[in-house]
Design a protein around this nucleic acid. Structure first.
Lengths: 144, 144
DNA sequence: ATTTTTAATGCAATTTAATTGCATATACTA
DNA sequence: TAGTATATGCAATTAAATTGCATTAAAAAT
């Protein structure tokens, strides 16, 4: 259920099955961590036009296929949504970890705790991001 | 203690007292909510060069005078740090509320709860942002 | 299978954001 | 008040994002 076929995902969302869309999904699904727009562009830039990539990412986000996480620089990063996501309400409220060394964003299991929102304010989504040094970069340091 | 004079803030941080720096602090202190780089630029663009503004914001962030909050678009927003902030460790771990209508970011009192970080990962900062409709925009809606 | 309809892609051009180098101007120090 | 250090503004550059439109490709209908 979780790791579905790109073609199925497209069909379920009434999106045309194009080479470019399939490639984007493949690339994003390949990595456990979220991948940034610039990195995607580096990887796919020769097979997919820059503008098309922007458009694909936007439609995927609208449909709830991907979720977008903004890192500490303001750069957009994308990861596959869990199957519980739907077009207009992402259920993506888990902790993200943004490594300030390698810049990767990890989707971690930890759920976002219940947060007390003041009267008058209505929250739709809550984003919880930890910034620091990840697993791999922590180990790498010891060898320096 | 909390609402200090711009000139004092500059002196305490060994920064030269310039017209531009004072204006930036005044402008940011004027609003309880954080203010975005583009909005600052609109307000100050005639008195301060665009590049200078970037540079001032960066030095303020480095010194711990301002903290930067990235909104859901990836745009930088700035607010005055509480007096507990120091140059290399911001103590800014409260809830931010980003209104998706007026785009303002509010610094709310709610503290960021303790978050369980997996082994191997080391977190330095934790960002907690709620997205939704603020106080004012919620009220405004009812009149439509 | 072929045609028709609908939508996605790529390209060119434009707009907006951010950064760099350097000459000039300004604030603080002695 | 002169000297020094540094901040500013301007010009130029680089990078990111968006828009319009002609072309191409996919799915639906025949």
């Amino acid at each position: 259920m979780q790791k579905r076929n790109p073609v199925d995902i497209l069909r379920e969302n009434q999106l045309k099955n194009t080479r470019q869309r399939v490639r984007v999904l493949e690339e994003i699904a390949a990595d456990k961590a979220a991948i940034s727009q610039p990195d995607l562009e580096k990887k796919l830039g020769k097979e997919i036009d820059r503008v098309t990539l922007y458009r694909i990412l936007n439609t995927y986000e609208d449909k709830g296929i991907l979720h977008r996480i903004i890192d500490f620089n303001g750069t957009a990063n994308y990861a596959i949504c869990s199957s519980a996501c739907t077009a207009h309400h992402h259920h993506d409220e888990h902790l993200h970890f943004n490594c300030t060394n390698c810049h990767k964003i990890y989707c971690l299991e930890t759920k976002v705790p219940t947060i007390n929102i003041p009267d008058g304010f209505t929250a739709n989504t809550i984003s919880l991001i930890a910034y620091g040094i990840c697993d791999k970069c922590g180990k790498a340091d010891k060898h320096n």
